[in-house]
Design a protein around this nucleic acid. Structure first.
Lengths: 183, 183
DNA sequence: CTGATACCGAACAAGATGTTCGGTAATAAA
DNA sequence: TTTATTACCGAACATCTTGTTCGGTATCAG
């Protein structure tokens, strides 16, 4: 692929990330993004159909990293974690978030960044759906499967939200403990 | 208060509600609202500083009804429900939602109406905080109180979201059962 | 080296926001 | 009923944002 494309695409992403740590998404204008990214207006729209698509693609790129690392640690590299229960996937997720790679946490916080949490939950649901069978936490018989998947994902996301709102005072281990208690 | 104010304020609310059942909030324009409400542009801004504040006030008005009826049934009119556990507050909430008064459910669904769920959760948290002591569901000792409040509220909201996404196929009793099971 | 193409930058129409102002009509209070 | 108040109208307005267009330039892959 043309290096120019990669360069501008990345510049736009970085600009959006920088702006997102200042203000909420719907207050950010395309003008600000292209200014910070040093990119022509036409160029922006050549890359992204609209501002919302930009956010969506950014989320996919970011979460792909996080979740790929996670499924990797539970599948391909499972020998490393042999001794651990599949539940620890969540602990690893929390630790990974805490490391704050790519400023994901900064994005997940902020005031009206509900879209992030929505995308986050979508990805998480896929992960949960895949790992459900091997998990310690058994589904109560009376519940529909997709309800159960949705529930686990929701609780995790909301737990992370609570964690963020508390400035990450607690350790990932504590949060994981909280999470497991309420499941 | 001047009857004119009440009239236009209500007209604007009704217009917004009508529009919200067609499209998501951020796609609705002030122009559409004042057209449907038959209200001058200046009048709109005399009532609401901005479109977001309009939404906020609408939510407060709507949810005030729902939750007031609920706290009423558990406090003032508690003699009616004497024989019931405080947990049934949630069942009543679900039934009340199902009746679809003021089209609340239509508003809670829709695509990007995350703000509604956010406001809904805010109000719910207050309710939960107040009723926590009398509830059957005891808090595990190791958990902070506000974490527990947040958790219960989150799960309820997400349960309602799931319910809505499933077109309310299930009865309020079933949903309440699901909810109690996962708590 | 050469053709393709990604970028620039400037301009553009279309549409939304929030404000202003003079005039009209409904309201509350006397 | 009369009077002073004030909510509303409607139309215009500056401003900002969006998304598109186009000719020229620089960079890329082959």
């Amino acid at each position: 692929m043309d290096r120019r494309q990669i360069k501008t695409r990345d510049a736009i992403f970085q600009a959006l990330i920088a702006l997102l740590s200042e203000k909420s998404f719907h207050r950010i204008t395309v003008g600000e993004i292209i200014d910070l990214a040093n990119v022509g207006r036409a160029t922006f729209y050549a890359h992204f159909e609209t501002k919302d698509f930009l956010l969506k693609e950014l989320c996919e790129e970011l979460f792909a990293h996080v979740f790929e690392a996670e499924t990797g640690s539970a599948a391909a590299h499972s020998h490393i974690f042999d001794c651990e229960a599949p539940d620890s996937v969540f602990l690893h997720l929390l630790q990974h978030l805490r490391k704050n790679d790519n400023h994901i946490l900064e994005l997940l916080s902020g005031q009206s960044n509900e879209l992030f949490l929505l995308y986050f939950k979508e990805n998480l649901k896929e992960l949960v759906k895949g790992q459900l069978s091997g998990m310690k936490m058994e589904k109560p018989a009376a519940l529909p499967e997709d309800f159960w998947v949705n529930h686990i994902s929701s609780v995790f996301v909301e737990t992370v939200r609570w964690w963020i709102d508390h400035n990450l005072d607690e350790s990932p281990e504590e949060i994981n403990e909280y999470f497991l208690q309420v499941i």
